[in-house]
């Protein structure tokens, strides 16, 4: 699920509207500031009887329906372009399919570092791509071996893409089942 830039302002707007609605009902019930008494409910009911109100409701239904559908669908994950231009010479251009190297990087990390369940995600950064590897740590791992494996991976990618078209980042999570061991310890 993606986070949209509109989420925060929309959440603030919706929060204010809900708060105003709730405050109105509470004032109606407990008569705290007398706002409800000053409200001409007869005029509101009369307005709802008008023909224009029906058409306005139709327009509101259409617009809010489209907005709700867009708001829901826009958060679905988008497919990231897998090709990255790595060089051009006149009319010729060489593109690299980054999705093809991500599984190799996963295998490399799983082989060299005390981690498992390695997954890869591609994140567009500027004109290039960041391959983000995510793995679960083996609790028996030590910091030095993780640093060494990440360094070797980074060096290999930097050597292959010296201009930084593709970079790599390693995220290490806790073990899948915290505290679990494949074999019981005997003291």
């Amino acid at each position: 699920m993606r986070t949209l830039a509109i989420d925060r302002p929309a959440a603030i707007l919706l929060g204010l509207l809900l708060l105003a609605a709730g405050a109105t009902v509470i004032d109606w019930r407990f008569d705290l500031v007398g706002m409800w008494d000053r409200l001409d409910t007869g005029a509101v009911v009369a307005a709802a009887e008008e023909d224009w109100f029906t058409w306005t409701a139709g327009a509101v239904a259409l617009v809010s329906g489209i907005l709700a559908l867009w708001w829901l669908l826009a958060r679905l994950p988008r497919r990231v372009e897998s090709r990255v231009p790595i060089g051009s010479d006149g009319a010729d251009r060489v593109d690299m399919d980054v999705s093809s190297i991500a599984p190799c990087l996963c295998e490399e990390l799983e082989r060299n570092a005390p981690v498992d369940h390695v997954t890869a995600k591609r994140i567009p950064v500027g004109a290039g791509q960041l391959v983000q590897l995510r793995a679960d740590v083996d609790p028996r791992a030590d910091g030095e071996s993780l640093v060494k494996a990440a360094g070797a991976l980074d060096e290999a990618v930097t050597t292959a893409f010296p201009d930084g078209e593709v970079t790599v980042r390693v995220l290490v999570d806790g073990p899948r089942r915290p505290g679990s061991r494949r074999t019981p310890r005997v003291h």
């Binding site: 740590v137 609790p139 791992a141 030590d142 910091g143 993780l146 640093v147 990440a150 360094g151 980074d154 970079t167 790599v168 980042r169 390693v170 995220l171 290490v172 999570d173 806790g174 073990p175 915290p178 505290g179």
Partner: peptide, 14 residues
């Protein structure tokens, strides 16, 4: 290493 990131859970488990 600047490109290695570790979660709190990983550090606690180790």
């Amino acid at each position: 290493h600047p490109n290695l990131w570790v979660s709190r859970q990983a550090i606690e488990a180790m």
